[in-house]
Design a protein around this nucleic acid. Structure first.
Lengths: 108, 108
DNA sequence: CGTTATACATCATATCACGAAGTATTGTTT
DNA sequence: AAACAATACTTCGTGATATGATGTATAACG
């Protein structure tokens, strides 16, 4: 997928991946990859950004002797998802505009 | 609309605006604005980029004593629109992933 | 003549995805 | 145990790009 197109989608994808239950970096990547490709460096950048924006909170927990950072979605994060649904409507109208065929001179 | 989301849409919107007939800067802005907000500086940046990418060609013509630059879509530009339609399918699946409700514990 | 609309151009700034490279621990295979 | 893969997170530099601010120039309008 076009990288510019991804820019608006990655954040909400990550939020969606932790919406139903807290998750951590490695798992988020696996859950999101079927829908959109993202690398580790990208993911962790996004997580930091979303944390700074108060859209998720972090908790460190031990698991199998190793530390994991579990991410939990906040109210603001949930609202971001709802906003995206609204934006989707705008995108739909854009899609129609872009994919509309020329119906210029009707009868050939 | 979220600025990151716009990034992937603006190029194709501009291409769509000249798809059916050649157009020029000021008119493109007016045609696209009902669907997505864009300023002059943004538009002319995009036009330059699309020209460099061979997605449109430019012709300067006089109109009412002033010069206008008319933009014409190329085959490559048309292909970009078709590619966008394919990407739309991916975006649809992403939308479903993001807006999917938790159906975790079925019967409450 | 002053103001507005038309028309195009340039620059600096901030945001962001991503590859590359690194650190560290836990299996797993040889 | 040595080697390697998988898990898990981090940092850095780079390139792409939307946008406001600013500038130039002409036509139309009052």
């Amino acid at each position: 997928m076009d990288i510019q197109l991804k820019r608006g989608l990655l954040d909400v994808c990550v939020l969606a991946a932790i919406k139903n239950e807290d998750s951590y970096g490695y798992k988020i990547i696996k859950d999101v990859k079927p829908y959109i490709e993202l690398s580790e460096s990208t993911l962790y950048t996004i997580l930091k950004r979303l944390e700074a924006a108060d859209m998720l909170s972090v908790r460190t927990a031990e698991h199998g002797g190793r530390l994991r950072k579990y991410y939990h979605i906040t109210d603001k994060g949930l609202r971001r998802i709802e906003d995206f649904k609204d934006e989707w409507k705008e995108m739909l109208s854009i899609y129609r505009f872009v994919s509309k065929e020329d119906e210029g001179n009707g009868q050939a």
